[in-house]
Design a protein around this nucleic acid. Structure first.
Lengths: 245, 245
DNA sequence: GCCGATTTGTCCGTATGTATC
DNA sequence: CGATACATACGGACAAATCGG
């Protein structure tokens, strides 16, 4: 279901760039040309281009054109980026994976958890701990808390599959905003218990806060990644000089 | 120098949010109200709001309003985010720091470096290695390559200070786009030689490609961060459904 | 160096659709 | 249902940067 015209144009241009029709360092057709091609206003074309800029696919150069910065990745074994869930990432990378629920309970946030998660103190939450197994190796330990006032019902069976698919399909809950913090920490005894750490004594820790369509913080997850299965990509672009201060 | 009206509005709203005038979970004034307040068109207000959404400060809810998601950070000792240089980060965090140039040379890209950096093979580059010392502890090892066809002159003295300030002031080179990849790796002998690794045997590795205003890749830097001084923050928001595929 | 054509950047006004209350 | 609020789209105008003659 093509929801918007600028979204269609965005996807079309993105596809043409990925397929090599607009190669690295070349200029895509000018905005006025695209207006004629797609039969829309210049504003709509510019919104599509803004999306490509944000995705790091192109860069606009005033007076010159829009240059392609995209290059096909030689190999991206397991790249975490933007707003994918673990299951989506695994599917995209065509890896074989499995999920094991090692803890499932209902509890209330205490002071420390409230401070770390951003939930109000004393709130009812589901507490779920899962181990992600990739190609037979336990690679990720995820400790999640879901606010029960939003996520009314949750079962270990749903957690065994994709929780996000369950939330979206059954409870009609979508993640609209996601705030992440990445750090590197010593592996804890729990990490050593559940994960195949091998020669590593550290791991990548991703703390994530998810907000639903109403702007309510409803999920807090801390994911512990084995170093060999952690990779995060990001693109930053300076637009107009807005960024400062 | 306020270059744009939507940039002014963006900064003003951001300041009001940070100062607590629009607290967490509240709704900022409606777009039409802001149009009246700032005396501009709705389009301009929306561009300012789009910036705040991307920064994770607010979230728009159709039919309801724009909700504040920002909360003052309790403790952010050394947060790497968006498009700051090391010196800017250090200044923002008011930490005492120092830079030591441990290598400076001119060379050409070989096959491996060309593949990793994205530079063309055989290109003339400056090769700079620097150690960042924070509060007397060597915490970051940065290995950088600068394309000489863009960065025509570079000296160890400029590298000892802020290279970006030098590039911007002296050579009028600005970073317009920056592509980053974050991984976690074992500490190499060079890391152990230069950094105070303590009990850690891993570090955060940030590979960075920087493009200038012409969309030319001119810098490739691999930064090795001590785990205690690495923190990366990021916000992702789903807008319009554009993100899929 | 100037000028004009091209191209992106900013801004305005308006109309219509959709979701919330 | 109507009022409010955000989402999408169109059109036009002018500024700023680039480039070629």
């Amino acid at each position: 279901m093509p929801r918007s015209k600028f979204g269609d144009i965005y996807r079309d241009l993105k596809y043409r760039i990925e397929s090599g029709e607009y190669p690295y360092q070349s200029l895509v057709p000018s905005e006025n040309t695209l207006v004629a091609v797609y039969g829309c206003s210049r504003n709509t074309v510019r919104r599509a281009l803004a999306g490509l800029i944000e995705a790091g696919y192109v860069q606009a150069i005033q007076g010159k054109g829009v240059r392609v910065l995209y290059r096909p990745a030689a190999r991206t074994p397991f790249t975490l980026g933007r707003m994918e869930s673990f299951c989506e990432t695994a599917r995209r990378c065509r890896t074989d994976y499995q999920t094991k629920v090692v803890h499932f309970s209902m509890t209330q946030t205490d002071g420390a958890l409230a401070a770390a998660s951003g939930f109000p103190p004393g709130a009812d939450v589901y507490h779920v701990e899962r181990v992600r197994i990739i190609d037979g190796r336990a690679m990720v330990l995820e400790v999640s808390y879901f606010l029960r006032s939003v996520v009314t019902t949750l079962t270990p069976e749903a957690a065994e599959q994709s929780i996000y698919a369950y939330l979206e399909r059954e409870l009609d809950i979508q993640i609209m905003t996601s705030k992440r913090t990445i750090t590197v920490e010593h592996a804890s005894p729990a990490d050593r218990l559940y994960l195949d750490m091998g020669s590593y004594d550290c791991l990548a820790v991703v703390s994530n806060q998810a907000f639903n369509a109403d702007g309510i913080l409803f999920e807090y997850t801390v994911s512990h990644y084995h170093p060999e299965y952690f990779r995060f990509q990001d693109t930053a672009s300076r637009r107009g000089k807005k960024a400062e201060q």
